[in-house]
């Protein structure tokens, strides 16, 4: 039952994310565009490139979609509205995001094209660097909640302040890592439209491209929802019903991510790596130490 209940907000969320994305990239607000684009893509011929690795080519878009959907299952919309409340939810959501890189490597290798392959391997380096920056801030969040369960993490923020106030460093790191994992601009190396002709999506058309886009929109939605759950107090808030708060916060985060990406030029690949390994990970360790010390000080 809850599963059916969750499908509607996810579909609506995907539609809003798609509308927002076209709004920030074209500057025109057209709510009907995602639907029109989907119909156009489904009507298009779905080409197969010459000598592809057929299995990888075919299963890459479904894996991306499956990874996105798997991540949505452990993110709560409200206290009881969650598909499965795993005790290891904070870890599971990471495990789901890591399969994005598997999908993108398959999509890069499968079609037997140079641009796609370069983009796929680039994303491997990017995700390994930034997956660390999603795991380590979540560690600090879990320390405060004394649980990995996503609902327990939200409830830990009910008494007192949200995590964004108590762990600002972790919030910034997780936000940037979330943008990098969802390959939003300025971190959009695997799909870089201007330098790699669409990257991993270069050889995809028609239905397969539609599934790929759908998977990516789901991914953006889950990452924004994760920012809300881990740092912005999830469903907590006055006046509105609980699930409305999650929806409003999530879509605000999506809009902020897309808006931020519009004004920043694409970061060079090696700078991206250097920032994560040399700056991001030490800062994430500092964040864990900071959270540990503040929790210990509050406890006494």
């Amino acid at each position: 039952m809850t599963m059916l209940l969750m499908i509607v907000p996810i579909v609506v969320g995907i539609w809003v994310v798609a509308t927002l994305e076209s709004w920030v990239s074209t500057g025109r607000f057209r709510p009907g565009r995602p639907l029109a684009a989907a119909v156009a893509m489904l009507g298009q011929e779905s080409l197969v490139p010459r000598r592809p690795d057929r299995i990888l080519f075919e299963i890459a878009p479904p894996i991306l979609l499956a990874a996105g959907i798997a991540a949505t299952t452990v993110l709560p919309l409200a206290a009881e509205v969650i598909v499965i409340d795993l005790a290891t939810g904070g870890l599971f959501v990471n495990a789901a995001w890591v399969y994005v890189v598997v999908a993108l490597i398959m999509a890069g290798w499968g079609p037997n094209g140079a641009y796609a392959m370069v983009a796929g391997w680039r994303f491997l380096a990017q995700l390994i660097a930034y997956a660390m920056l999603t795991v380590m801030p979540i560690t600090a969040v879990a320390m405060r909640a004394e649980s990995l369960s996503t609902t327990a993490i939200v409830e830990s923020q009910a008494s007192g302040t949200w995590n964004v106030i108590t762990q600002p460093l972790g919030f910034v790191l997780f936000w940037l890592a979330a943008m990098a994992v969802a390959f939003l601009p300025p971190f959009d190396h695997p799909v870089a439209p201007t330098e790699l002709a669409g990257g991993v999506t270069a050889e995809y058309t028609g239905v397969r491209l539609a599934i790929f886009r759908l998977g990516r929109l789901t991914l953006i939605l889950t990452l924004a929802a994760a920012v809300v759950v881990f740092y912005l107090g999830g469903w907590l808030g006055p006046w509105l019903p609980a699930s409305a708060w999650t929806a409003v916060k999530t879509l605000t985060v999506v809009a902020a991510m897309l808006w931020l990406g519009r004004w920043v030029p694409r970061v060079r690949s090696e700078h991206l790596m250097a920032w994560s390994w040399k700056l991001g990970i030490p800062l994430a360790l500092v964040n864990i130490l900071w959270v540990g010390v503040t929790l210990w000080a509050v406890d006494r």
Binding site: L91, A95, V98, L127
Partner: peptide, 15 residues
């Protein structure tokens, strides 16, 4: 869950 998460990156690196 840890196995699912670690092996995805490790085997991608293998690839």
């Amino acid at each position: 869950v840890l196995q699912l998460m670690m092996m995805a990156t490790e085997m991608s690196i293998m690839a």
